[in-house]
Amino acid sequence: MLNTERKPVTGKRVQLMATCLCDAFYDDVAAATVEVLEHLGVEVAFPEAQTCCGQPAFNGGDWAASRKVVRHTVKTFAGEEPVVVPSGSCAAMMFHGAVLEFEKEKDVGEVEALGRRTWELADFIVNGLGVKAWPGRYDATVAFHRSCHSRGTKSGEASLTLLNAIAGVRVVEFGEGEQCCGFGGTFSVSFPNISTAMGALKLDHVRAVKPDVFVSGDMSCMMHLGGLAAKEGKPIKTLHLAQVLRDALKGGPR
């Protein structure tokens, strides 16, 4: 069961979990997250010791290795402030996956506690802060990919609430929106044929509705789909929701 019960947000200070993917590849997504949160009057702290949420090893089945990383994460994000992460998948790792692999460990309580104050970005903005309007403008047709790790959470709906609130954004639905993009962490490298076939299907559906930009709350899906499209020689423009929100504040697409 997903543990999506949240502690209500009180103060206006959060800790940012930037994700290892943003740390390594997508610095602009993490930067956009900071700017979006600061626009909302939130003070953003960045615990320097952070690395990864532990999900690669958890999904790969090496729970002992994963727990090592989770323990480091728990230590790094000490305190009471909400932890905000621009990824549904890393958020779900904190409030669900980590709890599962710690169920027999003595420190499961600390892991659960971190899970209860970890928020996916859109969920935090809409349901944590109660913000449903977004100023600025962004003239574009947007296809939104609802990542699988947001199933059973409020993130997908929250993301659409925000996108639909931006003047100029036209959100288009595409076929089989509920289907997975085929990334799946280690699955993408150990099942390359199935993974890319799933990705190709997703790309077909998305291209059919001709969006200006393909947006998601998870860069892992976008890394896979964008990378696949580029390899095919037919690149598509992918962005994180945080980038769209920030660019809207600055007047539109960069």
Binding site: E48, T51, P56, G61, D62, S66, K68, V69, H72, S190
Partner: peptide, 17 residues
């Protein structure tokens, strides 16, 4: 498990900032 990357070294790295 063919094709599954080993995680031990990664975990070591990811717990040492």
């Amino acid at each position: 498990s063919p094709g599954t990357p080993p995680m031990g070294a990664w975990a070591l790295l990811a717990s040492q900032p």
